[in-house]
Deep mutational scan, measured.
Amino acid sequence: ATNIVGKVKWYNSTKNFGFIEQDNGGKDVFVHKSAVDAAGLHSLEEGQDVIFDLEEKQGKAYAVNLRIK
């Protein structure tokens, strides 16, 4: 899925991951530091509006192509 809109539920910059809540009511999506770095960001803030693509690997969904809304 592409261009999914959501809000950062939480992001832990020490542990380098967090979760994004989808605006469409879907399951929360894992986001890793690598996606944050690829977006040219240092971190994510709770409540921040983002747009992302959804990829699945080994049955787990995660956010890629992250951008600030």
Results as ranks from 00 to 15, higher is better:
61 A>T: 13
53 D>K: 04
11 Y>S: 01
30 F>V: 03
42 H>W: 07
59 G>Y: 06
56 E>V: 11
29 V>A: 06
50 V>K: 00
48 Q>I: 10
65 N>L: 05
39 A>S: 07
29 V>Y: 05
1 A>F: 12
21 E>P: 01
59 G>A: 12
23 D>V: 08
19 F>N: 01
30 F>T: 02
39 A>F: 03
56 E>T: 15
64 V>T: 11
32 H>S: 08
36 V>K: 04
5 V>R: 12
56 E>C: 04
67 R>T: 07
42 H>F: 15
38 A>M: 08
37 D>G: 12
31 V>T: 03
58 Q>C: 04
41 L>I: 15
16 N>R: 12
50 V>F: 05
22 Q>I: 14
57 K>T: 15
54 L>G: 02
58 Q>I: 12
45 E>G: 12
5 V>E: 14
49 D>H: 15
59 G>K: 08
55 E>W: 08
42 H>Y: 15
34 S>W: 15
68 I>V: 09
37 D>M: 13
42 H>T: 13
44 L>T: 01
43 S>R: 06
60 K>M: 13
12 N>Y: 10
5 V>C: 04
55 E>C: 04
14 T>D: 14
42 H>V: 13
43 S>F: 14
11 Y>M: 03
49 D>Y: 14
57 K>V: 15
29 V>W: 07
21 E>A: 08
31 V>N: 00
17 F>L: 03
65 N>T: 05
14 T>L: 15
49 D>T: 10
8 V>C: 03
47 G>K: 10
60 K>L: 11
13 S>G: 11
66 L>K: 00
25 G>L: 13
47 G>L: 06
28 D>V: 08
1 A>K: 15
46 E>C: 04
23 D>A: 09
12 N>E: 06
54 L>A: 06
45 E>T: 12
43 S>K: 10
31 V>K: 00
23 D>L: 08
35 A>S: 11
14 T>V: 15
17 F>P: 00
44 L>N: 01
7 K>T: 14
10 W>K: 03
25 G>W: 12
53 D>V: 03
52 F>P: 00
46 E>W: 12
56 E>Q: 13
64 V>I: 13
60 K>Q: 11
11 Y>E: 01
29 V>P: 00
29 V>N: 02
6 G>F: 01
52 F>Q: 00
27 K>W: 10
2 T>K: 07
52 F>N: 00
20 I>H: 00
56 E>L: 15
6 G>T: 01
14 T>C: 05
26 G>P: 09
62 Y>D: 02
37 D>P: 02
46 E>M: 09
21 E>H: 15
61 A>Y: 14
16 N>M: 10
24 N>T: 10
44 L>D: 01
65 N>R: 12
61 A>Q: 13
46 E>N: 07
68 I>F: 09
22 Q>N: 09
15 K>Q: 06
30 F>R: 02
20 I>F: 07
2 T>M: 14
55 E>I: 11
15 K>D: 06
2 T>L: 10
33 K>W: 10
33 K>M: 06
7 K>M: 06
2 T>E: 15
29 V>D: 01
12 N>H: 12
4 I>F: 06
53 D>S: 08
24 N>Y: 10
67 R>Q: 09
63 A>V: 09
48 Q>N: 15
41 L>K: 11
39 A>R: 02
55 E>D: 11
22 Q>R: 15
36 V>G: 02
34 S>T: 09
51 I>G: 06
2 T>S: 15
51 I>A: 05
42 H>K: 10
20 I>N: 00
67 R>L: 08
63 A>L: 03
50 V>Q: 00
24 N>E: 09
11 Y>C: 02
11 Y>I: 03
32 H>D: 05
13 S>Y: 14
48 Q>K: 13
27 K>R: 12
37 D>I: 12
4 I>L: 12
20 I>C: 02
35 A>F: 10
18 G>W: 02
22 Q>M: 13
13 S>R: 13
47 G>Q: 07
26 G>K: 15
12 N>Q: 06
42 H>R: 10
19 F>W: 11
3 N>E: 06
60 K>F: 13
66 L>F: 02
34 S>A: 11
13 S>V: 14
55 E>T: 10
58 Q>G: 07
7 K>Q: 08
50 V>Y: 04
17 F>E: 02
59 G>Q: 10
20 I>E: 00
1 A>C: 04
68 I>M: 09
36 V>I: 10
7 K>S: 07
32 H>K: 03
23 D>T: 12
25 G>R: 05
65 N>D: 04
58 Q>V: 12
47 G>V: 03
24 N>W: 12
31 V>Y: 05
11 Y>P: 01
63 A>I: 03
15 K>G: 08
20 I>D: 00
40 G>A: 11
32 H>F: 06
12 N>V: 06
32 H>E: 03
4 I>M: 15
25 G>A: 08
12 N>T: 13
69 K>P: 06
7 K>E: 02
43 S>I: 11
61 A>S: 15
68 I>E: 14
50 V>S: 01
28 D>E: 09
31 V>D: 00
36 V>A: 04
32 H>P: 04
24 N>K: 13
54 L>F: 08
69 K>S: 07
21 E>K: 13
36 V>T: 03
8 V>D: 00
17 F>T: 02
68 I>A: 14
4 I>Y: 08
30 F>L: 05
26 G>A: 15
57 K>E: 15
60 K>T: 08
35 A>K: 08
35 A>Q: 06
25 G>V: 06
38 A>S: 12
22 Q>C: 04
10 W>F: 09
10 W>M: 12
20 I>V: 08
50 V>I: 14
32 H>N: 05
39 A>Q: 05
68 I>S: 13
69 K>Y: 07
18 G>E: 00
3 N>R: 08
60 K>S: 12
65 N>G: 05
50 V>G: 01
27 K>Y: 11
51 I>M: 13
22 Q>G: 11
